[in-house]
Nucleic acid binder design. Structure first.
Lengths: 185, 185, 185, 185
DNA sequence: AAGTAATCGAGACGGTACGTCCCGTCTTAGC
DNA sequence: GCTAAGACGGGACGTACCGTCTCGATTACTT
């Protein structure tokens, strides 16, 4: 038996697929697998070789982008760190392109269990970032509910669309949550 | 010209359609238009005559049910009223049947603008209930963000599924929000 | 008990229905019952009160027109009478409007047994006219096959469209059939 | 640019579709596209990928069958050849199964231009067979009208249903037409 | 250099749901 | 009582995607 034969896999294709998915999502066009494959100049089978379902592709496309979003450098206080992080998160999520993408992601996750798993992982990662910030200043407080209040407002407004998701909201919310955490400590 | 001619809308059919939609949603079966029509003993055209899309049907079905959910009777304090309402809301939303339905609704709303409009109306109605409770005790406080924190946690957990939506959570969240509101007043 | 109440039935409506059917047929537009009713400014139920099916309406519309088509006056010989009748029949049937109508009729008759019955009656009537002409000159000859040859060529060409249906063809065919009948006598 | 990419057309599927169509037609069951697809174990899209309409499928199914129907071997005389061919044609077309099929085909052709084109081709092929027989014995006679008399009687009787389509009729008609042709030569 | 095999783009496949169209029936209010 | 309008249950239509399967072409390692 030999170590390896055959053509190597094309990493450009993988990148093209993720880009195509993000583009479609952001453009508001229907995100069909055929459309992704066509736009990426890739066969559908190539997509299924690497992802278990359409939703998983879309989510991975998003996740990559989102990871490098909000700052984690410290400002010297819980209030400051919280505000910097939450405001940046809200500011980014509030851009029209990003909003469309996040909505698209939830839409996929609700129809596809693979996508749901990736979304769960993605949001867990985001929550973890926030935990770490809180833990640095208040290591013993139970922060679960506070964290969910932050992301809850974000996603709720994104999905329903009844109110702004912007930096100011993030700032205001961060201050409120900081007070709440200090009181609980 | 006449005011109206032709057969009137059959309200039994309307009720049967909404019931069928809710049943399928709650049963976790795929909510196909054909399935709704079949279960309601109704032609598909009858559905499309009165609703612009599948999602709109599903949402209207839900909205009707949800309106009579959480109590609005007063307990004598903001804390008490808030806790009663939020805890009841979380308890109801946390049942598996209801969770499935709400998730299905968002899924529809994200793909269908008509459904999105109905979801917006539904959630606006829910928020309004909460505003009224707060306003009774603190008429001058800006409650928007507080209200969104409550429903934000609810929907965020429902959609991601990483944490419980139950009465205890509702109780705890209500207390936190009450404190927050008193501080802001 | 009263002798009669209610609105009298509207014979104009009947005429309007038949006209509408013929118009649609000749115009090549899809002959749906809704279209007939709409064009005739008539309720669908009014149509079904008088005809058993859509096809029957269409056929009656045609039959009325067709009955007064070919001459039956005598010219003094079998050849002459036959030629006059057949040439006139072919000339009339060959007009584009008439062709479209006849094709439409067969189309209805093939999908609707009521329509088929009326078409059978209509064609029987047409054949009868031809029998009478032949019988006047050759009372004892079996003319069935000869008659079917005449109408066969007519309908076959109308339906397939591979060759002309015109006066010249009718003339030529009449001469051939006359010879055939004389030989058989 | 490549000559071809992608999976090739599945000829088994094509055969299964045509068989299913013929079976339904012959069985007198409603020839639904869904029924054809279901019986052929084929997706509806596969049918629409290769035929422009339902009627085209049905006609192609028929055409294939019909080509190997009537004999073209010579018997030694025009009368003999004509009788053999026409009698065989009438005998075959007169079977209940075949009659139903042919009627169904015309029905399709009258509603669908693609089907009409295939029917035109099919009938042209049948006429050509008859021309060839006549031409062998009488190369210079104009046989168009004679040929249409034969097929005219066939189709006229099939569609109206007022008289038999059987071997005896074919035999009698062949004799008549043979005489007619000899006279014209 | 020739042989071998994994991977590629393309696209046909079986299947499910969609939203539209039309049929023939039923139900109104108006004349 | 009959009408025009039009809603009803039902069912076929042709389209859009899904996720799988099948091609010939390409690529890269092994011999």
């Amino acid at each position: 038996m030999r170590a390896h034969t055959g053509r190597r896999r094309n990493d450009e294709a993988k990148a093209a697929i993720l880009t195509a998915a993000t583009d479609l999502l952001a453009a508001g066009e229907p995100v069909t697998l055929g459309a992704i494959a066509g736009r990426a100049q890739v066969g559908k089978q190539t997509i299924y070789r690497w992802w278990p379902s359409k939703g998983a592709v879309v989510l991975e496309a998003m996740t990559e982008r989102a990871r490098s979003l909000a700052p984690t450098t410290s400002t010297g206080s819980l209030e400051g760190d919280l505000e910097a992080f939450v405001a940046a998160t809200f500011a980014a999520a509030g851009t029209p392109e990003y909003t469309a993408t996040l909505r698209g992601i939830v839409s996929e996750a609700l129809r596809d269990e693979h996508a749901a798993a990736v979304l769960a992982e993605f949001t867990a990662d985001r929550r973890e970032q926030l935990y770490l910030i809180i833990e640095r200043w208040l290591p013993d407080v139970a922060a679960d509910l506070a964290v969910d209040q932050v992301y809850g407002v974000l996603w709720y407004r994104l999905l329903i669309g009844h109110a702004e998701v912007d930096e100011a909201t993030g700032t205001q919310l961060a201050a409120t949550i900081a007070t709440q955490l200090h009181a609980a400590a």
